[in-house]
Computed example of a mutant assay.
Amino acid sequence: MNVELCLDLQVASKAHDLPSSEQLQHWASSALKGLREHAEISVRIVDNDESQELNFQYRQKDKPTNVLSFPADLPPELELPLLGDLVICAPVVTREAAEQQKELFAHWAHMVVHGTLHLLGYDHINDSDAEIMEQLETEILTGMGFPPPYESVA
């Protein structure tokens, strides 16, 4: 099943080496494959200040974070393809990729897939849910040719 994805991209970051709209679209579509035929997602790329502000406002954590997911809260009878919004903090993604010795765009792809799965209702609050989500992320990312996201670099 092909995925028809409408991705609205907002860049509110001064960071360089950001993925293209086409890359973001491909990564999100790969996360949706087999799960949704039609979807609309907004992706906003931000810097530390905006990420920290949103993370504090919505999660009571006073620090920037890699990705925040805001699922659309629509009544089911509307049957709209709107999944929700992702806010990705470019400096955090860049820092984490370096710390974890991962290729930058491999980590970007992971954040987009991770956030998209959250929009679909997947979570990692408890161990069993985390195991399911991590397995799915690994399948999606390795299917695109990226290394498994949760393996340590030796």
Rank of each mutant, 00 (worst) to 15 (best):
L83T: 08
V113G: 04
H107V: 01
E139W: 03
H114Q: 08
D62F: 13
Q135D: 14
L136E: 12
S20M: 07
F105R: 07
V92I: 11
V113S: 04
E134Q: 15
R95A: 11
L104F: 02
E22K: 12
Q60E: 14
S128H: 11
A97W: 03
E50D: 13
G34P: 09
E53T: 12
D62C: 10
S20K: 09
L7W: 03
I125N: 10
S51E: 06
L9K: 04
L68N: 04
L24P: 01
L83I: 05
V3Y: 05
I45F: 00
S51T: 09
V67I: 10
E79S: 13
L119G: 04
N2G: 04
T65I: 09
P75G: 05
I140M: 03
Q101H: 13
Y122M: 08
L78N: 06
S42E: 15
E131Q: 14
D129Q: 15
G84R: 02
Y58K: 07
E77V: 10
C6T: 14
C89R: 00
V46G: 02
V87Y: 01
Y150V: 08
E99L: 14
P147D: 08
I132H: 10
Q100P: 01
D17F: 08
L141C: 05
V93R: 00
D85Q: 10
H110D: 07
A28P: 11
I132Y: 04
P19G: 07
M1P: 09
L120P: 07
D127W: 06
D127Q: 14
V67A: 02
P147V: 03
N126C: 11
T138N: 08
D129T: 14
F56Y: 13
